[in-house]
Write a protein that binds this DNA or RNA. Structure first.
Lengths: 372, 372
DNA sequence: GTGAAAGCGCTAACAC
DNA sequence: GTGTTAGCGCTTTCAC
């Protein structure tokens, strides 16, 4: 027998002062087995069990066999907290989502988990409700779990949050918008490019009287993403020498069905011969299409509509919505790979920026006009 | 000075054999501060720091003040893994989701997190991809983190998974469908009741020639939830003495736009005078409504449609879809409260079952016929 | 109010 | 190949 000293102590109450008798059979609820229980049952040292658990090939096959049987017999599950302490590796990667229910961010989480799982990391998800103060709190909670890397949703962070992140001395990746001035690794796409792509597409399809529906830019802590799309759209029009008088900004994010419905009415008043519009979001596009239907305006024959986001209804509506799509799951996977590589020391210290790009899904809501 | 013995050891390499000299300033990257660093800086014992961290009122105000300053100065964040080991409380609650991207399960997670956060628990999310074997793997991974409670999505689990769950000796809650034969706590709603509610509503609105669109029941590990809704619907018709000849089951889950589109065609062939239908999912309802539109059949004037799920497009489409809604976020909150109470010893050992109920959202897709 | 001792369950490092 | 030693960074327990 090995490692037989160091009597277990457990809570005082458990040490019943029975005089030299065996503990009453079955009376004591068996505690969660530890590596020591396994080692005793297999008649080996705890180190040997530990080696079997980590698939070390330094263990002879039949010792391993004995140990594995003991593990199965006891229903032993190693305690990662203890393992983390001893090895100084928690296996956690933190992901701060704005909320849990947005399909895009969920897809990122899914992609991340796909990759991290294979590399034996566990995703630790928190959400901020788009609130900077809450983000700070959540970062602190996360840091207490000693994550080996942190994924943030790109945007502004408090000074204190940034300080904590720096102090933590782990790789940090910002995800979603590509932000040129960020100090962290970035994986994402360009909203500006979304707007340009939409304009290019409408122009290429021979449409000339085109406009866009965006939002008023919000305050400092606001959602500027739609505005970036609109700016890309305007710039592309400018480049093509086309007036941007049909680009309107109304309401604040988040957009709703009504946003598109009302905006298209405004646009129609401004120019009844308008041929095509880009909506900053599929939701807006949906509202616009529905309003057209009510007014007996044919989409895409009379007005073409292109959206952004590829929401689930986009491919189900009538007509099926042509839209610009970002592969968020792939975005998550790329982020995961970046982290795994980084943690494995397979990449340098310099900042990495990955643009996952955009894809335009050609469906039925944009017509093609023969050019004059 | 207190607690001054036990020289730190760190990795061998760090113990540079400099002869009696102070470590070269700035040369050594400062390690993550521990409670010991804080205690030294504040000239107190580690226990006192620990007490400050847990807001114990056994610390004098100015000692606490000194400690807090030291914490801030060092940017100290306590290590929860170490704390977990010593206190035998991890603060983790596990939630096994089928996937990360379904809006309903995300809402449950959100609700759970809302409540658990306040009680200082942290949600540990895993996903199973609806795969029993993966669920087993994920349960094992989860158990290694020693969660204090586990939330499962209701359904079948492997024998081994059930054994591990039992062995873990923590509260387990099943969430979503209410399953009468489950051995765990359950929080959810009844799919059967969904079908009955839909039928009752259509009948109450004076519609008599009514039917439903469901799916073929899938194999053993399949999605039986739609089928339960359909059965509730049929039973309610039966009770009302109305024939169920317009209840059809086509395709397998998951449903799509096409499912509704094609099914409504079948129904129209079977009886052109059909007045109303219940679709097992809003997606199906959406497809059905769009097909009606194409065929110039007015919804709800000619055919009424009621769905299930309250998907985001339901309130945005034209006409706005009347549907049955489950408040999944509230479901998550109730589950969270059950867990917190249970962990605080505020509830007994017996199984708890909570039905969060259903709400019918009356919108525009169901007409009202005056009864003859 | 505060501190010292002991140990939670594991693994790095080294010995044999 | 296997075992021993010495912690990882906290908190429990008890002493003062």
């Amino acid at each position: 027998m090995t490692e037989s000293k160091k009597g277990k102590r457990r809570t005082k109450t458990a040490a019943s002062p029975s005089i030299g008798a065996k503990p009453p059979a079955k009376a004591v609820r068996s505690h969660t087995p530890t590596i020591r229980d396994v080692s005793r049952l297999a008649s080996v040292s705890r180190m040997t069990v530990s080696r079997v658990l980590s698939n070390s090939n330094l263990v002879s096959p039949d010792t391993a066999e004995r140990v594995n049987r003991a593990i199965a017999d006891l229903g032993y599950v190693p305690d990662r907290a203890a393992s983390s302490m001893a090895s100084r590796r928690t296996g956690f990667v933190g992901y701060m989502m704005p909320n849990l229910t947005s399909a895009n961010f969920s897809s990122v989480a899914h992609g991340l988990a796909d990759v991290l799982q294979d590399a034996n990391y566990q995703l630790l998800i928190s959400y901020t409700d788009y609130d900077l103060a809450q983000e700070e709190v959540e970062i602190r909670n996360l840091l207490a779990r000693r994550p080996e890397a942190i994924v943030l949703t790109s945007g502004v962070h408090t000074r204190e949050a940034s300080a904590m992140l720096l102090h933590a001395n782990v790789p940090v990746v910002e995800v979603a918008d590509l932000q040129p001035r960020s100090v962290y690794h970035s994986v994402g796409f360009s909203n500006y490019q979304v707007g340009r792509m939409a304009a290019q597409y409408l122009l290429q399809r021979g449409l000339r009287r085109i406009g866009a529906i965006g939002c008023e830019s919000a305050g400092d802590n606001g959602d500027y993403r739609g505005e970036e799309r609109i700016q890309g759209f305007e710039d592309e029009l400018r480049t093509a020498g086309i007036p941007a008088d049909l680009v309107i900004r109304k309401d604040r994010p988040p957009v709703s069905y009504a946003h598109g419905r009302e905006a298209i009415s405004t646009l129609l008043e401004r120019d009844p011969r308008i041929e095509g519009i880009f909506a900053v979001s599929d939701v807006t596009a949906f509202g616009a299409v529905m309003e057209c239907r009510r007014r007996q305006i044919a989409v895409p024959e009379q007005i073409s509509v292109i959206g952004f986001g590829d929401f689930d209804f986009a491919s189900e509506m009538e007509p099926r919505l042509t839209t610009i799509h970002v592969d968020f799951r792939e975005l998550g996977r790329r982020t995961g790979r970046l982290i795994v590589d980084s943690l494995a020391g397979r990449c340098g210290k310099e900042r990495v920026v990955i643009d996952v790009g955009l894809s335009l899904l050609e469906r039925e809501s944009v017509a093609s006009r023969s050019l004059p």
